[in-house]
């Protein structure tokens, strides 16, 4: 999985993901997101348009970063999930917790109050 960071403000970024987001790649995402948080980023929108497969390990990594940002007064939301990622979110009921937007633009607009 490839991860590209697009910085919008000093504390707001978009994370564009490309490739399978599963047990093989989740840890790398978590590390990268936590480093950004340590560097002062509080608002993250995760662009899932390039993710053909999301599993429980990917979801766990998203929840972990979501919690860490919320503790520091920040926010994480998701954008452009495909049918497979939506299935994974629905089966774990996490679609009720992690805010999901149709487009990256909407996600970015809502992530920071």
């Amino acid at each position: 999985m490839n991860l590209t960071t697009e910085a919008l403000d000093p504390d707001r970024v978009i994370l564009h993901l490309e490739g399978r987001f599963d047990a093989d790649t989740a840890e790398a995402f978590k590390q990268a997101a936590k480093e950004l948080a340590a560097g002062g980023v509080k608002f993250m929108s995760v662009d899932l348009v390039g993710v053909p497969f999301l599993d429980s390990s990917g979801l766990s990594a998203l929840v972990s970063v979501f919690k860490a940002l919320r503790r520091s007064g920040g926010q994480l939301n998701l954008a452009a999930a495909g049918p497979q990622a939506r299935t994974a979110l629905r089966l774990t009921l996490l679609d009720k917790i992690l805010p999901l937007f149709e487009t990256v633009a909407e996600a970015v607009a809502h992530v920071k109050p």
């Binding site: 599993d55 429980s56 390990s57 979801l59 766990s60 929840v63 972990s64 979501f66 919690k67 994974a88 089966l91 774990t92 009921l93 996490l94 009720k96 917790i97």
Partner: peptide
């Protein structure tokens, strides 16, 4: 078994998916 999403589970999501599907 089923997981309560309000608890923000950071692990143990896999087998609940298996059992629910």
């Amino acid at each position: 078994g089923p997981v309560d999403p309000q608890t923000l589970p950071e692990r143990g999501l896999g087998l609940p998916i298996l059992y629910s599907v």
